[in-house]
Design a binder for these strands. Structure first.
Lengths: 397, 397
DNA sequence: TTGAAAGCGCTAACAT
DNA sequence: ATGTTAGCGCTTTCAA
């Protein structure tokens, strides 16, 4: 079934031989021609060679005579040939893609779906107004910056990146959908059940972005949570002469536990009273509520050392609403170094994680293990950096 | 080749029948067992049914007797069966994945690869110091927020997302790699040659995130650039009584041209002199250099209306260095609404694009066309919103 | 309700 | 240097 085929200015009659196939080469849709795309068979026939030669021309150029290769490549180009990754993956057993399973919290809350097509398009938002689009508190977060590192490193190494989140479907199904497409997997903590992860880990390299919860066979990329929290707490005590400090935030996760440990180490070293627990009950992520409660009880410490920046920002909101001034009345510090901490006043003093680098390490680990499957699991711990801003009491500049 | 197989607490002897295959079921790696993963054949044998039944149990549950289905699913679960997306894609002709081809500017510049493992880990950064990790000027940008919208909507609809950037490889190769894996494609402007895009567009739905440069057969998602720029320019003229305004930034792109048009419309309506050209020479993206030049020439206008936020931020840097105070001496406004515009002082007045929503629209268009291939190309234009902050001269709050 | 069997497009032995 | 061919794991008629 020959057809006219215009390519880059050349008008040429191209024949996609389909003797080998059942179905029609072209699908006619309301008069519009939508080609399914030529395959190796089409290119081979057009170039007058075998499919193996076509395949080799792309994958093993050195195995094909230069002149043949050029010719095949030219024909392929002209026909607009694009190899099917599905077929390649199936035949070769490798997809050259890496998967990343991410959070998707707040996916469809009203906050996340601002009605941009609302009543008054192209209007102005006055300085005092809240722009529903400006959800800088939700993006970019910790995960997003790490994801960016993963992307950049994947591209640099020539790997494709498959990104998945829970969406509305159940986790196992979505995870399976990703796992079925990739050679290696990166997951954020608490996104995938440990047992599922273990199972996947027996099939392909897996990196989890956290301290190991329990000893496992997975790879881990993390930061020195304890040292980071220790340094910022030391700063509060040493530079700002604070002696009444509380730890705010959930300590369920292993990273948060390590941060709490750093906090306690600093207090102990300074000879201060060392609290046994976080001010937040286990599993309670609502930092604002905890702060309101402390205020009501009159038991607010002079400094709040928070498990995450998001906790710290929520705490500062609650304090502001209650008329408590940061850092004058209470100093606040966070952990992560998300962008939102730099916006508004006071800006947030925090312990910054090298998120982009963490993402790059993830890909490095995965690719190493793809190339050398015998490598044992690793745990890479990156350093943090304390960034002093306004909320701890350091001077505004 | 039976082996012990521990699943969720049950210790069971599971036999992966491989009669049909050549290779070994297990690959022994330095004593560690790395399974290739069970296939439909394994599940079928174990469950005592045909592979068709296994497949149907997953894809056409209603075609299988309930009891059989449960049994098959149970066996599959127990064996840790994960369907191969490659095989599915090959057999079914659809991958249920969408591709996004993104920028990757500054990929490996020193700025983008901070030495986080440098000399002094876990140290402090004083308020005055520049933290090399704090590259908030580079992330998140316009693209990143749109990408996030694409991600969220893909997940919501149950599509996988393949993200690609140029990386170090040549564009056509990388594009082909993505195109070979997906059912539909989204591209940022100027990332893919028009001819390549046209070719891909004849095979699968494609959405470009810009005004059409020339009439084409692609889908487009864009914003009302002209109206947005018109409103913010009106504001400068009306609210701040400015009469000497210049447009800064490259106007090569179709979106930028539309913005320049809005700028001119506002000046014309106000009876002011309407410049024929941008202050930046065509193709010159270095806003800071242009500003330095204007200062040197003594021809700085009272207001700089910039094509993008990045231009505006670069301009403000240059002005600050030259001792020119924004907004007192010169008002500056941008376009996009990136997060960096909210950081530091003065904060940037800008025209915000509904980026997350744009990303969602992209997926909506793609999925619609996947379901109804006969639909014609569309162009969706979303409204913008002017966000007044400090750089235009509006009062700080 | 289930099974048999024919591909999907590609890779990589193996043969020539 | 190039061709032949047997799968890769799954979906989907068509038959039973």
């Amino acid at each position: 079934m020959p057809r006219d085929h215009v390519e880059g200015g050349l008008l040429k009659r191209v024949d996609f031989g389909r003797d080998r196939r059942r179905g029609p080469d072209l699908v006619d849709r309301e008069g519009e021609l939508m080609a399914k795309g030529p395959t190796v068979y089409d290119v081979a026939e057009q170039a007058g060679v075998s499919i193996a030669t076509v395949s080799f021309a792309f994958r093993r150029p050195e195995k094909v005579k230069a002149s043949t290769r050029e010719m095949v490549l030219a024909v392929a180009r002209e026909m607009g040939y694009v190899p099917s990754a599905s077929a390649r993956g199936l035949a070769h057993g490798r997809t050259r893609a890496i998967g990343l399973f991410s959070f998707d919290y707040l996916l469809d809350s009203p906050e996340r779906r601002p009605a941009t097509d609302a009543s008054a398009p192209n209007t102005k938002v006055a300085p005092g107004d809240l722009d529903p689009n400006e959800d800088f508190r939700l993006f970019p977060l910790y995960v997003d910056e790490i994801q960016r590192g993963v992307e950049l490193e994947c591209w640099r190494r020539g790997y494709a990146l498959m990104i998945g989140g829970r969406g509305r479907a159940d986790t196992d199904a979505v995870i399976a959908d990703i796992v079925g497409r990739v050679d290696g997997l990166a997951v954020f903590p608490y996104t995938v059940p440990a047992e599922t992860l273990r199972r996947i880990g027996s099939r392909m390299p897996v990196v989890e972005l956290s301290e190991p919860h329990v000893p496992d066979e997975l790879n881990h990329v993390t930061v020195d949570n304890t040292a980071g929290m220790r340094v910022v707490t030391d700063h509060l005590i040493g530079a700002h002469q604070l002696t009444s400090l509380g730890f705010l935030g959930d300590t369920t996760g292993s990273d948060q536990q390590a941060r709490f440990r750093g906090f306690r180490l600093a207090l102990r070293a300074a000879g201060l009273r060392v609290p046994r627990k976080s001010l937040s009950p286990l599993g309670n992520g609502d930092a604002a509520a905890v702060v309101r409660n402390l205020i009501a009880l009159g038991s607010l410490p002079r400094a709040l050392v928070c498990a995450t920046d998001q906790d710290a920002l929520a705490a500062m909101d609650a304090l502001r609403l209650a008329g408590v001034v940061v850092p004058r009345d209470v100093a606040v510090v966070g952990f992560d170094g998300i962008v939102a901490g730099r916006i508004g006043h006071p800006t947030l003093t925090t312990v910054r994680q090298p998120m982009e680098q963490m993402g790059r390490e993830v890909v490095d680990i995965l690719v190493n293990r793809l190339d050398h499957p015998e490598l044992p699991p690793v745990r890479r711990e990156l350093p943090t950096r304390v960034v002093l801003r306004e909320s701890c009491g350091c001077p505004t500049r």
